[in-house]
């Protein structure tokens, strides 16, 4: 039991709840956290107690549990009547939360070098642009040409 308590509470690099360290190498300014800003960097250093190279297994279990809860919530919302116009926005928000959870923590983007984030974010922006253009063109396909 004492060992279990140690695992749950210690943040010294051996506990289950170790949070990942911020930037994965020195190309990021060492005083900044993965989303930038010295204030966050300081908080991050405090949370991780100086940091380890990657998270503890318990941290991933926690993220997996939260993702499962969000999925259950989505399915439950499907059965709820009377949400009206709120149904789709709520589902989209929950879906984005899951998406970000997996990309940030399971794919380690949150703690990896920022260049990877820039790569993926650029692709997401272009992807969303393609998505929007297709929907826009289809919506206006039967109308008078714009130009």
């Amino acid at each position: 039991m004492a060992n279990l308590w140690q695992k749950l509470t210690h943040h010294d690099g051996n506990g289950w709840w170790n949070l990942p360290h911020g930037p994965s190498n020195e190309l990021n300014p060492p005083h900044e956290g993965p989303i930038g800003g010295a204030w966050f960097g300081n908080l991050w250093q405090t949370l991780t107690h100086g940091g380890v190279s990657h998270a503890g297994a318990g941290f991933y279990w926690l993220v997996g549990f939260l993702l499962a809860v969000v999925t259950l919530l989505e399915v439950w919302l499907f059965t709820v009547e009377g949400l009206g116009g709120w149904y789709i926005p709520i589902l989209l928000i929950l879906s984005v939360a899951k998406f970000v959870g997996v990309v940030a923590y399971f794919m380690h983007l949150r703690f990896d070098h920022r260049m990877f984030t820039y790569f993926f974010a650029s692709a997401m922006i272009i992807g969303i642009l393609i998505f929007t253009i297709i929907l826009f063109v289809a919506e206006h396909a039967h109308q008078k040409p714009l130009f």
């Binding site: 790569f119 993926f120 929907l135």
Partner: peptide, 23 residues
């Protein structure tokens, strides 16, 4: 980096198909 670039291209690939479904 190459894998991230590939995943980026796959985002566009799936984005086009999901948009087509919605259309």
């Amino acid at each position: 980096l190459m894998m991230w670039a590939f995943l980026g291209s796959d985002v566009m690939f799936f984005g086009a198909f999901i948009a087509t479904y919605l259309v």
